[in-house]
Design a protein around this nucleic acid. Structure first.
Lengths: 204, 204
DNA sequence: CTGATATGACCTTTGGGTAAGTTACCACGC
DNA sequence: GCGTGGTAACTTACCCAAAGGTCATATCAG
């Protein structure tokens, strides 16, 4: 039998893996783990399903690879900003600026770590927990500082405020995904205006 | 063959439907549409799968019924509050208070309308759009007022701020789901404290 | 007996995962 | 230059379990 296509593309493994990770991250980030099929990813990449399994072992392995790549990116950047000297609201804005710059081509990356349809046990859950805690810990740190300035050190208050902060970032990333023409710079300026509208213009 | 259970329970249809909707709303709201199976809902209700199909037609029909029940509840309450005279941040807090009171037994209801794994076409999408727009429109109205007070009437700014506001509500509901012992009253007081920590105590 | 409540067993589709083979290419001996 | 064998890249065709959905039937109150 003639199989005119088998093995003829000759794309190096690393290139192909990168391409697959790009597409998979976008799909997982946009539709969630459960609602994304490996076949759809293969289709978009213009390759067959088994190649993905050959390179990543399983759907979970693929997701984990996305998490590892994206998580390192995110956590490193947030940690870099946390080492700066901004405090309180200012630190939040600095973090936002970093996120916008980092995620300019791919805001959906953020959502990989906050996907309710991802498995809640096994290696994926561990990997998510790892990065989400790394990100969450830094958020917690910033929020603790902010709340401390106002004389509030209640742990549950801090926990709730951290959740709200992450929710704000999440909603901004979602909004960004729906307005792909906005540049990181524009997003940042928009956020400054929103902050000003709330506080009356005494920031920075 | 002996079928010791068939038809013997005699639960009136409306009671059964209510019970199914309660469980289904919780499952859909907690895990998302795609990650929830009809069989799991039937199990939790202690009934068989065909009864659900008999009453609701399909998984989508079941989800739609959840949406209709929950959406009416939410939208009515938010509309009621919007008719009050609170403005700006105050209106936001009043809305939050109403949401907490309304959703005290079932914070997950909120998430039915913001589920990325729900179908994006067909009757479900229509139904979601209906309620999400009804809720979103009121949010937009409140945000427009708030931004107007600060002299900002840029449509994209307002759109982004509305997204942030909905994201804040969303994150508070999520946090609440992870802290089920908190009463609506406690949640509200916590929110007041968070607001105070941010603004320095000049609200209400 | 009729209609409402309810079920076990089944059908079908979807999607994760696999087996086995095909094509291209490169290194190597001659 | 040129067969040749190994290997990386890649595919078709399939398996199988899970989950959406259906059908014929059972129980029981009125």
């Amino acid at each position: 039998m003639v199989r005119p296509n088998a093995g003829t593309k000759g794309v190096p493994r690393l290139d192909r893996e990168t391409q697959i990770l790009d597409i998979a991250s976008q799909q997982f980030g946009t539709h969630g783990f459960a609602a994304t099929s490996v076949a759809a990813i293969a289709d978009q990449a213009g390759i067959s399903k088994p190649l993905i399994y050959n390179y990543f072992g399983s759907k979970e392995g693929l997701y984990e690879a996305c998490l590892d790549r994206g998580g390192a990116l995110l956590a490193d950047e947030i940690e870099r900003i946390a080492r700066g000297d901004a405090v309180g609201i200012e630190r939040g804005m600095a973090t936002l600026a970093g996120m916008f710059t980092l995620l300019e081509p791919q805001p959906y990356l953020w959502r990989l770590f906050f996907d309710p349809t991802a498995p809640s046990t096994g290696p994926i859950a561990d990997s998510i927990a790892l990065y989400a805690e790394r990100i969450g810990k830094l958020a917690d740190e910033g929020v603790t500082e902010l709340m401390g300035l106002a004389g509030n050190d209640d742990p549950l208050d801090i926990s709730a405020m951290t959740a709200v902060w992450l929710g704000i970032v999440d909603s901004l990333m979602n909004w960004w995904m729906e307005h792909p023409d906005e540049s990181a710079e524009q997003m940042m300026q928009r956020c400054m205006r929103l902050l000003t509208a709330l506080f009356g213009g005494d920031t920075e």
